[in-house]
């Protein structure tokens, strides 16, 4: 492990601002560079999306930050403590889900949590049963507390893993792909769980390759590609360079295009939005909107005045997804 012992001394100064801070963090597996000199800065109180395609180094970064693997080079701090020297002090305040949950199949869900809680020497045994019950309740597993973990479904295991991360009040929650294996309802529940944890002031560091899932809850994000950090910042910053788009859903596609062009917009017909498929006569028309164009409400008024039957009108903020795809490449194949 790298020499960070002196860094562990100077604690309080930065601890107030950044929950996770890495500089030049590199991790090699033999010849392969899994994480390539990344400089993460996760502000306290943020919900930080750590995005990247499969194999881009997200889990490896998390392992190194939590002291499971030693960095090849670079330094890092978690909750103001140097890693690995200060981890004993930082980790009790960190809850983590790393590359999927893992349990003793022959123990019940509640006993699995008791076991993990006992491993933390700062956790008070007197309150253990209460905290275990509360954590199970929080992830909707109260009824399955006595069931053996081997009998849990994939989604139940995922929830139990999240419960383990919530056993004691945490300052930082690190969740690696927390919605893996969850049904849409479960995915929504995890999102609202993350929101409620964040509302209590906990910093949440959540990794995912499914950007749409994370986009709704994050305040900040970083994007990984082939081991390197290609973008990082608040969500507004990351979206910044993208284009706002107006989208009109109408049976009069050609009329809408003509009218929008008349207003000075670069309009074009696009594929109808999903869900409108059964409405065969509906067309979708999109046009990028910039600052000197008419206000959206004036555009609608002009369309209606021109006799275009408007069924739907949207002003779409640039999606992070477009940015994500632009930065990481669209291909389905993992990059290496």
């Amino acid at each position: 492990m790298s020499a960070t012992a002196p860094a562990a001394e100077q604690t309080e100064a930065t601890s107030t601002e950044l929950a996770i801070e890495t500089s030049g963090l590199t991790k090699k597996f033999g010849q392969q560079v899994a994480v390539n000199g990344i400089d993460l800065a996760v502000p306290r109180g943020a919900v930080f999306g750590f995005l990247g395609p499969n194999g881009s180094g997200k889990t490896t970064t998390i392992r190194v930050i939590l002291g499971l693997a030693a960095a090849t080079s670079g330094s890092m701090r978690v909750l103001g403590r140097g890693v690995p020297a200060g981890l004993d002090d930082a980790l009790p305040r960190v809850g983590a889900l790393i590359e999927g949950p893992a349990f003793y199949p022959f123990l019940s869900g509640a006993d699995n949590l008791r076991r993990l809680d006992a491993a933390d020497r700062h956790a008070n045994p007197a309150t253990r049963d209460d905290r275990v019950a509360a954590a199970l309740d929080r992830v909707g597993l109260a009824h399955a507390a006595r069931k053996k973990a081997r009998a849990y479904s994939l989604g139940m295991k995922q929830r139990l893993g999240i419960a383990a991360a919530l056993l004691t009040p945490r300052e930082l929650l690190v969740l690696d792909e927390p919605t893996n294996g969850l049904d849409p309802q479960g995915t929504r529940e995890v999102r609202s769980l993350i929101r409620s944890v964040a509302a209590e002031g906990t910093t949440v560091f959540v990794s995912s390759h499914l950007l749409a899932e994370v986009e709704q809850i994050c305040t900040h994000a970083a994007i990984m590609s082939v081991g390197s950090l290609v973008a990082q910042g608040s969500l507004a910053d990351l979206r910044g360079s993208g284009q706002t788009v107006v989208r009109v859903t109408t049976p009069d596609g050609e009329g809408a295009v003509a009218q929008l062009r008349h207003l000075g917009l670069d309009a074009a017909s696009v594929a109808p939005p999903r869900g409108a498929g059964r409405d065969l006569d509906v067309a979708a028309v999109e046009a990028p909107l910039s600052g000197d164009d008419p206000a959206p409400e004036d555009i609608v008024a002009a369309l209606v005045a021109a006799g275009v039957r408007v069924r739907g009108f949207d002003v779409e903020q640039p999606s992070l997804e477009d940015r994500f795809v632009a930065l990481t490449g669209e291909g389905f194949d993992v990059a290496r």
């Binding site: 939590l66 499971l68 790393i98 893992a102 003793y104 993990l116 491993a119 933390d120 020497r121 383990a164």
Partner: peptide, 13 residues
């Protein structure tokens, strides 16, 4: 089992 990583981040030491 994969539980080793969770014991270590608990942190068990």
């Amino acid at each position: 089992l994969g539980t080793l990583r969770y014991l270590l981040v608990a942190p068990a030491g």
